[in-house]
Design a protein around this nucleic acid. Structure first.
Lengths: 237, 237
DNA sequence: TACCTTTGTTTAAATTCTAAACTAAGGAAT
DNA sequence: ATTCCTTAGTTTAGAATTTAAACAAAGGTA
């Protein structure tokens, strides 16, 4: 049965972009819709996938076209396909989420969609389509994933202190302040951090700067998956 | 921009159905393709999604049409959309996975696709499309998820002993034999099991039969999510 | 009645976690 | 130059948890 016999839904890719600037909240990148359905409302960056591009590539392309933001960590989240979720007809959206450090990717503002802005995750405007639901799922996923995979590092600058890392975890998880100095022990014993220097010009004892060591991490993942280690990567917060 | 201006990919739903019969391996439900691309090869049950049905509903419909199996736990897995994954053109597949206890759902055999059979997960035939890749991801997901969500109960009969539950965990995770009698402690202290009787006519001390208590589980999930409890549900194997 | 098998409990030692006290390293204030 | 303040980082004792082994129980079978 060749495909052309079937009526086909439209397929879009949308991206929930989380940004972090060292503060006490996560940011979310939204665009203001310039055209037809939900015109003027805020929405996730995204658009129709092209016939010859991979889904993730499409998500990154739409993101760059609409916001100018590129070169970031992106991963598939979930596919939303309930009939009626888009007034234009049957539209299935393959939602992604992405993480970005705002000091690396400066104030996104661009292009063919009318407006682009970063919103605090806990002060979002009204959203088009079912995008509020998508964002909620992305947030849940981020919170769950950050506990057992080192994706948080995507939100920090290349070099960071343990204090900054802990503040990020507290921000993502919404916990006021946890585990005090035990956080340090747990993260360091995994061996996935590498010392790269010390802070300069701070009005207190300068902290050690660390960098995420991807090679060591991959090695640990392999050892765990082959059964050599069991708990090596639990930095369970 | 109305959707009809865009070329549209085809969208299918596929289902990785895991079955368990109390033995030492997991089974996988496959169909033998009766038509055009990959004719005669084994493949996942699935097909084109209809214009007015939800993705999960489509997965269940195709599954029942092609194999006769219905009424089971199903969840979205991942969406596969690489160009070229289907020789018929651009086909995006929203893959799902499902869990079923084989004593409840007897030998699936049916219908419009030519053949249906259960295969041992570690003795799979050559597979059509990128279905081997989909199965691999589903297996990884099942192994990961069974450690922190009680989805394993979907694979057991209504009433089961702790020995049976442990055997299931060992089968899913591929561990020869773990934790001996501590498994019991960890599962029981969560409170998600409810005693419903004892085994009959066995040539040894009869084991207590348990049933999964969904209400207690939901209650614990809520308490955890609201921060009251932290570790209540870690039955981390 | 003795024995076999599997279920289920108890417990002591080992390990890990928690939280507090303590030490260190800067700049800023005096 | 000295003291003070702030944040970084270490040590450690007590609490809690995990592990693994010994032990006890409950059938059927010989």
């Amino acid at each position: 049965m060749p495909t052309y016999e079937h009526p086909r839904p439209s397929v879009t890719v949308d991206v929930v972009v989380f940004g972090y600037d060292g503060g006490h909240d996560l940011k979310l990148l939204l665009i203001q819709r310039g055209s037809d359905p939900y015109q003027g409302q805020w929405a996730l960056p995204g658009g129709f996938v092209e016939m010859d591009e991979d889904l993730e590539a499409g998500a990154l392309r739409e993101l760059e076209e609409e916001t100018g933001v590129k070169d970031l960590f992106v991963e598939q989240l979930y596919t939303f396909g309930k009939p009626g979720r888009d007034p234009r007809g049957r539209v299935i959206s393959v939602a992604h989420y992405a993480l970005v450090n705002l000091s690396k990717h400066p104030a996104a503002a661009a292009s063919d969609a009318s407006e682009v802005a970063w919103f605090s995750l806990d002060k979002l405007p009204e959203l088009a389509f079912d995008h509020a639901e998508i964002i909620k799922l992305a947030t849940t996923r981020l919170r769950a994933k950050v506990r057992y995979q080192p994706i948080g590092f995507e939100l920090l600058p290349e070099e960071f202190t343990l204090g900054e890392l802990q503040a990020l975890y507290e921000t993502i998880l919404g916990v006021p302040e946890f585990n005090k100095r035990n956080f340090r022990t747990r993260i360091l014993r995994t061996g996935i951090l590498e010392e790269v220097g010390r802070q300069q010009n701070v009005a207190h004892r300068p902290a050690i700067l660390y960098r995420f060591n991807e090679a060591t991490y991959q090695q640990l993942v392999e050892q765990r998956d082959s059964g050599v280690l069991r708990r090596a990567l639990d930095f369970e917060i």
